[in-house]
Design a protein around this nucleic acid. Sequence first.
RNA 1: GGAGAGGUGGCCGAGCCGGUCGAAGGCAGCCGCCUGCUAAGCGGUUGUGGGGGUAAAACCUCACCCAGGGUUCGAAUCCCUGCCUCUCCGCCA
Length: 421
Amino acid sequence: MLDARFVRENIDLVKKSLGDRNSTLPLEEFLGFEEQRRILLKEAEELRNKRNVVSEEIGKLKTRKQDASKLIEEMKGVSDKIRELDEKIRILEENTNEFLLNVPNIPDKTVPVGKDETENVEVRRWGEPRQFDFEPLNHWDIVEILDIVEFERAAKIAGARFSLTKGYGAKLERSLMNFMLDLNTSKGYKEVFPPILVNRESMKGTGQLPKFEMELFRIADPEFYLIPTAEVPVTNIHRNEILNEKDLPIYYTAYTPCFRREAGSYGKDVRGLIRQHQFNKVELVKFVKPEDSFQELEALTNNAEDILQKLELPYRVVALCTGDMGFSAAKTYDLEVWLPGQQRYREISSCSNFTDFQARRANIRFKREGKKGTEFVHTLNGSGLAIGRTLVAVLENYQQKDGSVVVPDVLRPLMGIEAIK
RNA sequence: GGAGAGGUGGCCGAGCCGGUCGAAGGCAGCCGCCUGCUAAGCGGUUGUGGGGGUAAAACCUCACCCAGGGUUCGAAUCCCUGCCUCUCCGCCA
């Protein structure tokens, strides 16, 4: 969320940002509410001041056993008046808050302006797509040959868009998870294993709510939400906290299952493991000082890339344009891995700098050494990596003519075999 | 699930038969003084957010004693609801 004062003082910037993101909001109405709110707030505060002063006077009279009934009579009703004003202010605040919660983050100056994913900009490529001397298979065919993933039985147990890995499929998934966590922790990320059911406040803190309710699974009674990404619980670790400057930056990495409704994606990726209601992911999360955040985004993206490099999977890095970027992000790089079965690059990681957008919502601040007051931290996160899609990439890139799949070097100690046959 | 106890400032901990309490006292921290150095000692100081104010400060003001309501001229203190923590019993991966 943006700061109310920031919006009213930078109205043109906000207008441009909304335009670049293909969205509109009633800015003038917001300004009106804000103005009105501040007027009433002042009025209410003056009344409170009067109440404080006179009540203190009454207190003094009473302790001296003097008559205060006149003052008390005079003050009757003042609290009711304050209550009335408070109610009006509360409604105005609700309006402005409602508005602010729906304003997306301002894109960084370096973000390419564009209307949709076709205007994203490729930043770099790594690795050469392998040349096959046979027609490479889709992963859904590979897993069937190797008998390492069940779709029909998963559908029986749960429903469409669920899967069940088994044998070396399950072990590959576990190996990838360990490989990623170990690599990330070796770079200074602290491993955490958070709750995967969270409350509304946490979902608001990272920006999933109120706008994206339809993408979340919810438990009704008692109310909990299933996390769509570890970003939610991990960023909320420090909700409502004031951190010390010397503790920053803080780096976390977490493995969690992730749950997404995938509403509105009925036709997309119906086969295979690409788009599931439940999938595994290792996430990277950073809390940093404002002046460092864009450089930290580059580093975080590099850390995610390193996983692909060690797995020797070809990929490219794409800078998302204003029209394609997520609601809370100021800047985002997607990593897209090469899938021979589909002959195209597919998203496997998304790394974003949220600047102070999430921190303001989640109220995560820090205090500079020797300075008064507090500032909001900047938060960042990125997948490092989506495990299901990494599994797909390994299977498709390492497949052999005979249907077997060679295990990437770095995974062999974990898998205990050289190939899945 | 049953029975109790409790949530106060960076920490510990008073206050809780309503008034001068942003909150005693201690510890930690910071600034001075003192001391050959260290320790002890002495004096002062130390929260967050909002509104106004300023070139920036100073300053003025409002709110905050888990959260949200209520009673009252006035609430950390009384009442209600919720959340969380702890102890005992039961149940359980």
